[in-house]
């Protein structure tokens, strides 16, 4: 089974697609086979970050059943070992997936014959996005240092956490607690899921242990993108600290990725950034993050240890 990374985070424009594309290149350069999957179905642009225009196949072929095997819809990129499954042509029809379609995609992704899969997710906290994020081994949450971006990332983390929490509660029939989890307000803003675990602990201490254990399997990685020199270098570490303190899941800050004006130029030139501008702090940062993602300190989890089950 492939090791799956999902790139998410609440806000649009933080650099999720940029990071998915460039980490894909870095992972492929580690000598592994990598498949990028664009799951921002409403606004796919991962192929643009890779400098690709004329993609003949993609997820749409799989969804309209003209191709049975998802891996056959992948296209090679300019980087050896790196393939892409684009959602280029599905945007209009399948912006909103049906439950069964979503499960089908997730199962097919798990079976891709490759070493790594990198999922590029859309902004926001729709169930589709959350479930794709939860289907990964490591969920990468990308944010920038602006207060609004931090806020959206925290909202995203809470939404993922809450969704996972609900899955666990349902799966293990925590009947009384499930009611209390109706914690979302009408506008979909997540209130504090921090207190949900506490309330289960009060009402059902015996099973609170199980809940903690299950939540503990959820692994978040944090990436701070568009980092500029004068900013607090420890911001990411601080957020990691707070997350680990207040949630029962595992959080790791992978590092800052420097802002670079040439990102724009690389897109216009139809080249993936790390290939066009290898000797920049941004490229070094991306390489370091990729190393951390696959480094010796990260053990490959067994099948049971993915963030979710289908």
């Amino acid at each position: 089974m492939a090791h799956i990374f999902a790139v998410g985070g609440g806000k649009g424009g933080t650099g999720k697609s940029f990071i998915a594309a460039n980490l894909g290149v870095m992972l492929a350069r580690q000598g592994k086979k990598v498949v990028l999957v664009d799951l921002d179905l409403g606004a796919p642009n991962l192929h643009t970050m890779m400098g690709l225009t004329n993609l003949k196949t993609g997820l749409s072929n799989f969804l309209n059943k003209s191709v049975k095997n998802l891996s056959l819809t992948s296209a090679p990129t300019k980087t050896p070992n790196l393939y892409i499954i684009s959602s280029l042509r599905c945007s209009l029809e399948v912006g909103n997936l049906f439950y069964a379609q979503k499960q089908k995609i997730i199962r097919a992704i798990w079976q891709l014959p490759t070493d790594y899969v990198v999922l590029d997710l859309g902004a926001g906290t729709t169930y589709n996005t959350l479930d794709f994020f939860l289907a990964s081994h490591q969920g990468l949450s990308v944010f920038t240092p602006e207060p609004t971006s931090i806020q959206n990332t925290v909202q995203f983390i809470k939404a993922v956490y809450l969704r996972k929490l609900k899955h666990i509660l349902k799966q293990h029939a925590f009947a009384t607690a499930v009611k209390e989890v109706g914690y979302e307000s009408d506008d979909g803003v997540v209130r504090s899921p921090l207190d949900i675990v506490d309330s289960v602990m009060r009402s059902d201490p015996a099973r609170a242990k199980l809940l903690q254990k299950e939540l503990g399997k959820l692994r978040f990685k944090l990436i701070l993108n568009q980092y500029r020199k004068h900013m607090d270098v420890t911001l990411g570490n601080k957020i990691e600290k707070v997350c680990n303190r207040h949630f029962y899941s595992q959080f790791q800050f992978l590092g800052n990725i420097a802002y670079n004006e040439r990102v724009y130029e690389s897109i216009i030139a139809r080249k993936v950034f790390v290939a066009k501008y290898p000797y920049t702090p941004t490229s070094t940062d991306l390489k370091n993050v990729a190393n951390k993602m696959t480094g010796r300190n990260v053990q490959a989890p067994t099948l049971k240890e993915t963030n979710a089950k289908v």
């Binding site: 207060p147 931090i150 806020q151 990332t153 925290v154 909202q155 209130r191 504090s192 921090l194 607090d232 911001l235 601080k238 957020i239 600290k241 707070v242 207040h246």
Partner: peptide, 18 residues
């Protein structure tokens, strides 16, 4: 610098009461 009133982190994570 994390939990203080003017920290963007605290502001994002916690309600006023928390």
């Amino acid at each position: 610098s994390i939990y203080g009133n003017d920290s963007p982190i605290s502001y994002s994570f916690f309600t006023e009461e928390e």
